[in-house]
Measured scan of single mutants.
Amino acid sequence: MQGVVKVNSALNMRSGPGSNYGVIGTLRNNDKVEIIKEVDGAYEIRFNGKVGYASKSYITIVN
């Protein structure tokens, strides 16, 4: 499943599905991501070869 990031500035990509996990990357508006699955209000995603988590509130599914 594919998604597009929709933010005003940037969205943190984290090592786990919550803000208490470390930041492993930054997503920008209109970045395209692969959605692997939904976990606790976040999506597990793949972006630029990395797998991490981002809030589903800022990712629009575009299948």
Results as ranks from 00 to 15, higher is better:
M1T: 11
M1F: 11
M1R: 12
Q2I: 15
Q2R: 12
Q2V: 14
G3L: 02
G3D: 01
G3V: 03
G3E: 01
G3R: 02
V4T: 07
V4W: 06
V4Q: 07
V5A: 03
V5F: 01
V5C: 05
K6M: 09
K6R: 13
K6S: 10
V7E: 03
V7F: 06
V7P: 02
V7K: 09
V7H: 10
V7L: 04
V7S: 13
V7Y: 07
V7C: 15
N8I: 12
N8L: 12
N8T: 13
N8M: 11
N8Y: 10
N8W: 09
S9P: 05
S9V: 13
S9H: 14
S9G: 15
S9T: 13
S9Y: 12
A10I: 15
A10K: 14
A10S: 14
A10E: 12
A10N: 10
L11N: 02
L11C: 15
L11F: 06
L11Y: 04
L11W: 01
L11E: 05
M13T: 02
M13G: 01
M13S: 02
R14L: 11
R14T: 13
R14A: 04
R14C: 11
S15I: 08
S15L: 08
S15E: 10
S15Y: 06
G16D: 04
G16Y: 03
P17A: 06
P17F: 05
P17G: 03
P17Q: 04
P17L: 08
G18K: 06
G18M: 04
G18N: 12
G18Y: 05
S19C: 15
S19Q: 12
S19R: 13
S19G: 11
N20V: 07
N20E: 13
N20I: 09
Y21F: 12
Y21L: 04
Y21V: 04
Y21M: 08
G22F: 12
G22R: 14
G22A: 15
G22E: 15
G22H: 14
G22C: 14
V23H: 04
V23F: 05
V23Q: 04
I24R: 02
G25R: 05
G25I: 10
T26W: 09
T26P: 04
L27W: 01
L27V: 03
L27R: 01
L27E: 00
R28K: 13
R28S: 10
R28P: 01
R28H: 13
N29K: 07
N29V: 05
N29C: 11
N29Q: 07
N29H: 09
N30S: 06
N30V: 02
N30G: 15
N30D: 10
N30R: 08
D31P: 01
D31V: 05
D31E: 06
V33P: 01
V33M: 02
V33T: 00
V33W: 02
E34S: 08
E34K: 06
I35D: 00
I35F: 02
I36C: 07
I36H: 03
K37N: 12
K37T: 10
K37P: 00
K37M: 09
K37E: 05
E38T: 06
E38V: 09
E38D: 06
E38W: 04
V39T: 08
V39S: 05
V39E: 06
V39G: 03
V39N: 04
V39C: 10
D40G: 13
D40H: 10
D40W: 09
D40Q: 09
G41A: 07
G41E: 10
G41I: 04
A42V: 14
A42N: 14
A42W: 15
Y43M: 02
Y43Q: 00
Y43I: 02
Y43D: 00
E44M: 15
E44F: 14
E44A: 07
E44P: 00
E44I: 12
E44W: 09
I45V: 09
I45E: 00
I45D: 00
I45F: 05
I45P: 00
R46T: 07
R46M: 11
R46N: 09
R46W: 11
R46Y: 12
R46E: 07
F47G: 02
F47T: 03
F47E: 01
N48I: 04
N48S: 07
N48K: 12
N48C: 11
N48T: 04
G49M: 05
G49R: 04
G49F: 04
G49W: 03
K50H: 08
Y53H: 01
Y53V: 02
Y53F: 12
Y53K: 01
A54R: 01
A54T: 08
A54C: 13
A54Q: 01
A54D: 00
A54M: 05
A54V: 15
S55V: 09
S55N: 13
S55R: 08
S55D: 15
K56L: 05
K56S: 09
K56M: 10
K56A: 09
S57A: 14
S57G: 11
S57N: 13
S57P: 07
S57T: 12
Y58K: 07
Y58S: 09
Y58R: 05
I59E: 00
I59W: 01
I59G: 00
I59V: 06
I59S: 00
I59Y: 01
I59L: 03
I59C: 02
T60E: 14
T60W: 14
T60M: 14
T60S: 11
I61D: 03
I61T: 06
I61H: 05
V62F: 09
V62K: 06
V62E: 10
V62P: 07
V62Y: 09
N63L: 12
N63S: 13
